[in-house]
């Protein structure tokens, strides 16, 4: 496939896992903006402290869809504190790499997971763990400008 995408990126783009929404989601995280060209929205179902189900909706390029799909696979069934340790680098490695111009998509996936967990804590009226705080600050130009 085009753009120097790996076989795994190609697979997750062509057959994305966990696409959709969750009714009565316990946490929803949305990052990115349409002006920059990508938005990711992640829905979490949380039982106890485990992410029992996850879905995503993404507006974006092939890499954005593939990283969303891979990130949801990597946190599904995992305890929250483990999901919060998900790094963009781990997502990229799991996909066998991304072209340099597309690395920001993986940052977006990490941020979307964190934003969804933060939303879960907020909804429960609990303090938001420090790990949920975004390191990117939403400045797209910082990563891909």
């Amino acid at each position: 496939m085009a753009m120097g995408y790996s076989e795994k990126v190609r697979d997750h783009f062509a057959n994305p896992r966990n696409v959709g929404k969750l009714d009565n989601a316990d946490g929803i995280g949305e990052v990115g903006n349409a002006v920059c060209g990508d938005i990711m929205k992640i829905y979490l179902k949380i039982d106890g402290d485990v992410i029992s189900d996850v879905r995503f909706n993404t507006f974006g390029c092939g890499a954005a869809i593939a990283t969303s799909s891979m990130a949801t696979e990597m946190i599904k069934g995992k305890p929250i504190d483990e999901a919060l340790k998900l790094t963009n680098r781990a997502v990229v490695e799991a996909l066998d790499g991304l072209p340099p111009a597309k690395l920001h998509c993986s940052v977006l996936a990490e941020q979307a997971v964190k934003a969804a967990v933060a939303d879960y804590y907020q909804k429960k009226g609990l303090p938001v763990p420090e790990e949920c705080v975004s390191s990117c600050g939403g400045d797209c130009a910082h990563c891909c400008g």
């Binding site: 060209g37 990508d38 390029c61 092939g62 954005a64 111009a101």
Partner: peptide
């Protein structure tokens, strides 16, 4: 880009003016 890649999977070569 996702649109043109989906078309590519169907064997159709196209192009896009998206940022990506």
């Amino acid at each position: 880009e996702s649109l043109l890649l989906r078309l590519d999977l169907e064997g159709i070569c196209a192009s896009s003016g998206s940022a990506c």
